[in-house]
Design a protein around this nucleic acid. Structure first.
Lengths: 222, 222
DNA sequence: GTCTATAGGGTGATAGAC
DNA sequence: GTCTATCACCCTATAGAC
């Protein structure tokens, strides 16, 4: 199963296939990606794909898992490794790392939205992924509830807080083509602006949620 | 071509096919949707699909156009029809309408991201869609530049402003499954929260962009 | 306009030689 | 482990009867 060599100077065939699959699945999704494309991208024979991974579906699941880990792994680590810091500082670190991850993997947000949209992950409690997600939830959302949801923010539903954080960080990457086309900025400028957001998003979030006017609105509705 | 009856009490076959195609394409995208599924969903024979629409691709393009119009049409109208109002009021109306549209068409945001991600629209200047987009750009983004980008906001790139607006409105719908799973809210609760955002987003945006701290950050970077 | 039947090519997966 | 050849099925599209 695990074809590891002692001196992996050359990348193994298995790894080549996985890398090609990751590239294509992440870009185009499951249905639009053909096994023949993966084989060609990897520079190997089509039969080897089934030899190493049994089926297209199995290969996709491996890629999906790696992408989900990549997407939420950084979050978990930056929260776990910085328990001693203030919530604000933790948030700054998280945003910084996240944007770096997304700049290096620009198709990741769309892929994650894509699999969650089609209901491809979550649900199975035997899945180690499920525990990771749960871990993230307890580690981070507890922080939010305890640290942000104080004062008037008790009235704001946590979903708004999480939504707004994720929106500001992730959405520009998911909508990169749209935004670039509409505003006429180049890829290079776009990347520069995303780096700028590392500093801006914490300030924006602070401003949004330090606003007592929210309370009036919520109260009025009830 | 146009099989319009004088008394369309029953929906025409053409419309049935288009409605089924819209439903499936919007939910699952182009590649994952099979013509057989569309035919079955419409309750008609597979051959009729090609009789009315010539090919899967043509049918998809029709659906895509309608969805893009639905997505940006509301924007254009609410700006055009309210030129006499202040920018803030226009923005409130736009957000209100937008969220209604998205509640009625929850798969729309993901579909739009999907086609823009795969580069399926934009570009062709002969396309009437291109003019609509351009119209939107001139109508709305001029407003932004002239009305929001005053004072310290001159330093903020318009992409940030447009990003943040679209993020707060659209992202929760694109990530609905993720957000519901992570926060444990039901579909009903989710919809209630989205309605709540009609009032909250204008306040949040105001707070974000009335923040002189932004300037310090931008200046420091340069 | 609507159906059945089928063409024609693509697609995932495997058998078997090397 | 890697290749060629091929199977069996699926998919879009069309021909032709009614």
């Amino acid at each position: 199963m695990c074809a590891k060599k002692n001196l992996p100077i050359d990348i193994s065939t298995e790894e080549k296939i996985k890398a090609a699959a990751k590239k294509l699945f992440t870009q185009k999704g499951f249905s639009a990606t053909k096994t023949r494309d993966i084989a060609e991208e990897a520079g190997i024979n089509l039969a080897l794909l089934n030899y190493y991974f049994r089926s297209k579906q199995k290969l996709f699941e491996i890629v999906m898992r790696e992408n989900v880990i990549l997407f939420i792994g950084g979050m978990i680590d930056s929260i776990k490794n910085n328990q001693h810091l203030t919530f604000e500082k933790k948030l700054e670190i998280l945003i910084d790392r996240y944007i770096d991850t997304l700049l290096a993997n620009p198709d990741l947000p769309f892929f994650i939205l894509s699999v969650s949209h089609s209901g491809h992950f979550g649900g199975d409690e035997k899945d180690p992924l499920f525990n990771s997600m749960k871990e993230l939830r307890t580690a981070f959302f507890k922080d939010i509830v305890e640290n942000i949801q104080s004062g008037h923010l008790k009235e704001i539903h946590p979903l708004h807080i999480i939504s707004n954080m994720m929106s500001l960080i992730v959405f520009p990457f998911a909508a990169a083509n749209l935004l670039k086309a509409r505003t006429g900025v180049s890829q290079k400028e776009f990347e520069k602006l995303m780096l700028e957001r590392k500093k801006l998003i914490p300030v924006w979030l602070k401003a949004m949620f330090a606003n007592p006017q929210e309370l009036k609105i919520i109260k009025k509705k009830k």
